[in-house]
Nucleic acid binder design. Structure first.
Lengths: 100, 100
DNA sequence: CTTCTCTATTATAATATTATAATATAGTAA
DNA sequence: TTACTATATTATAATATTATAATAGAGAAG
């Protein structure tokens, strides 16, 4: 393999690993799976994932800062949804591999 | 969503996240990408990934203990290969998403 | 205004991961 | 045997992640 290809590969692995880190946690993966089915409020996600308010909010804040999700306030609720299309692709891939 | 489905989903996310943790590191992902193209010795992987001997060996030992890879000694070299077919599927999915 | 609900932020202790160095082991060859 | 190469293991310090608790802010309702 050429040195140029190895460099490109290392770079791709870097950005892939960075995104994978966000998915590589049981509850974070779970919340993204739920978001893959449609936008949800923080409270809904807490209940669906059995996570604490603080933890869910922290997860969402970090994912938002990395561009994986975005959000929109509606009254006193904040609704999150998947922003980066690669997240959808990854969640779909995970589903194929781990859910049958 | 039914409580039963939520439970199954949580379980699936648990095992998926466990495997994703192994992929969610630049060099570990890189080494798995190289193994996806065929078995390689530890030394080859060190050179391809620019990782130290110790680090590469530690990564491989842990992946072996989780069943992602297995190995076979040939003389003074040890050749590793992907064992779990899900790893191949995941690497292929990563390639689609991050390498074009 | 007060109170309530929903969400975000901050602080922190416990734990896990990471990279590195040093040492050990296994095989090969002389 | 010795010396050499390849790999594994152990120890450890630096760093990152995780879960939890406490506090803060923003909007709705009375």
């Amino acid at each position: 393999m050429k040195s140029k290809d190895l460099q490109a590969m290392a770079a791709n692995c870097g950005s892939a690993a960075r995104m994978l880190k966000q998915l590589a946690h049981p509850r974070r993966l779970q919340l993204l799976c739920h978001l893959a089915e449609g936008e949800k409020s923080v409270g809904e996600l807490e209940r669906l994932c059995l996570a604490s308010q603080s933890q869910m909010s922290q997860f969402l804040t970090r994912m938002r800062s990395e561009g994986l999700v975005d959000c929109q306030r509606q009254g006193s609720n904040v609704f999150y949804r998947i922003q980066d299309p690669r997240v959808r692709e990854l969640i779909a891939a995970m589903h194929k591999v781990f859910c049958r």
